[in-house]
Design a protein around this nucleic acid. Sequence first.
RNA 1: GUGGAUGUAGCUCAGUUGGUCAGAGCACCAGAUUGUGGCUCUGGGGGUCGUGGGUUCGAGUCCCAUCAUCCACCCCA
Length: 429
Amino acid sequence: MQNLITKRPRGTNDILPGEVEAWQFIEKTARNLCREYGYKEIRTPIFEHTELFYRGVGDTTDIVEKEMYDFKDKGGRSLTLRPEGTAPVVRAFLENKLYSESQPIKLYYIGPMFRYGRPQAGRLRQFHQFGIEVFGSKDPAVDAEIISLAVDFYKRLGMKAFDVQINSVGCSRCRPKVKERLHEYLIAYKGELCETCLGRLERNPLRIFDCKSKVCQRIMSSAPKPLDFLCDECREHFDKVKNYLDVLEINYSVNPGLVRGLDYYTNTAFEFFAEGIGAQNSIGGGGRYDNLVETCGGPATPGIGFGLGLERTLMALQSQKVELPLDRSPDVFVAVADKNSDFAVNEAVRILAILRREGFSAEKDYMQRSLRAQMKYADKKDFKFAVIIGEEELNRGSILIRNMKNGEQQEIPKAEMVEKIKMLIEGEK
RNA sequence: GUGGAUGUAGCUCAGUUGGUCAGAGCACCAGAUUGUGGCUCUGGGGGUCGUGGGUUCGAGUCCCAUCAUCCACCCCA
């Protein structure tokens, strides 16, 4: 047990049969939604040059400062397992010159992300995100569209309770003003701020809004907010986003203290919250990043996107007792009454092939079980039907079909088996 | 990176003040008059008690170390 080769690395998880169906359902829901909204999937490597995240995510963020899963390859290059999806997609957007296609470019991804930290409830070193990015449009309707997509995602999964909070952190023109005024305000409280926020005061005072320290929160509750200093353009943008959300009948609240942890956000920032994830409550978030593409060396291109945590989504669904519509039951178990009869076993193998060719999931025993044990197995594995064959029936040219839910059993001509099963399984639905 | 809790069969756990202590339930496998499941009953396989030291005549049971897990902080998904 303690042996490393039988132990998964800290902060990682195996997703086992029985659990993976929920994941497949979530992924399928995301893909369907993206198709409906016109987003195309993009798959980027799970590791990138470390510099990408340094530049793309921002070197004052915790992600870069202490959560990077980086390593040197055999060529001495510094690489990093991606901690988030936006920077890699921006990189791919630039490297493949997607900006030369007609815009907006609408992309989505589903995959693992990595952050090095102590794991706890709702926090892993390898976790999964579903994210989307839109490049090329400043239209506030896009902001509303992606929030709408996320809300639809949660709703379609059956999530009963979650909150949408939005805010605007301003653009490169109004942001300096915010930081300046915030700094002026905070100087008076310098002695009261917690240690980490003291450091943030000079480097990035906006982040102090995120602090959970009671003292800092009290101080920030009456601090000047980014919303109070938006330029006319940003103000108008934010108003239009809210308008479109109203048109879409999406419930949201404006949280003037919402500041996302990544440095690249401009204008719209939003976050989704739910309960039941240990001490965590954020299940996803995103925002606009109108300067990021240019920062990474590309043509000035506005962008916006979100990242939703899949583990956290799953945990929230579980704590809300949401039943996902999963069908884990296989269709037909082919049981052989005379397990020592080559004739019967051959027939079973043949029937399996026929059923599978028709698209049914079908299995037989491979453990030399008695008929009784085969039936027990079929029951435990939750098969919908059992086809039972023995020399007796075969000699008559027939087989037995048993409904494992209610025990109804009938003998029918072998030639009618496929049609009969089709009919029965249709009837189940 | 910091702090707290925990670590006995696949799972959930019992194991008194150190001396039949290696157990229970569930799960798994096989049977219950030999061709049929879901209830019940019987039997069986499976653990060097996380690991390494130490104290002791003797340690899951005490001490130290180590590893791991969980929870929380920082921060976020």
